[in-house]
């Protein structure tokens, strides 16, 4: 059983598995990666790299949803 770490998602703390990637985080939150822009520690991570970026304790993640209405 891998250890859990704490990351901050949109300002709120969240526990995830120690080896979790950004893609895993989105799956945990039931979010389609094509519908959000993901920032990890203030750097935008583009869709193809989401599976490669592993989360570390204390990481700050911002998820910006596509909003199109007017």
């Amino acid at each position: 059983m891998p250890e859990a770490i704490t990351v901050v998602v949109n300002g709120e703390e969240r526990r995830v598995g120690a080896q979790a990637s950004l893609l895993d985080l989105l799956a945990l939150l039931e979010l389609d990666p094509r519908g959000v822009v993901v920032e990890l520690n203030r750097e935008i991570v583009r869709r193809p790299q989401l599976g490669e970026k592993t989360l570390h304790d204390g990481d700050r993640v911002e998820l910006v949803h596509f909003v199109g209405g007017g």
């Binding site: 094509r34 519908g35 822009v37 935008i44 583009r46 869709r47 910006v64 949803h65 596509f66 909003v67 199109g68 209405g69 007017g70």
Partner: peptide, 28 residues
């Protein structure tokens, strides 16, 4: 832009400033 109870606002494309695509590169 707006959706349900959520809204976004910014100023893009000003001189030397980021544009909409700098943030939202690929459309959903």
């Amino acid at each position: 832009s707006i959706f349900r109870f959520a809204g976004q606002a910014s100023v893009f494309a000003a001189e030397g400033a980021p544009c909409y695509r700098c943030l939202f590169r690929d459309p959903p």
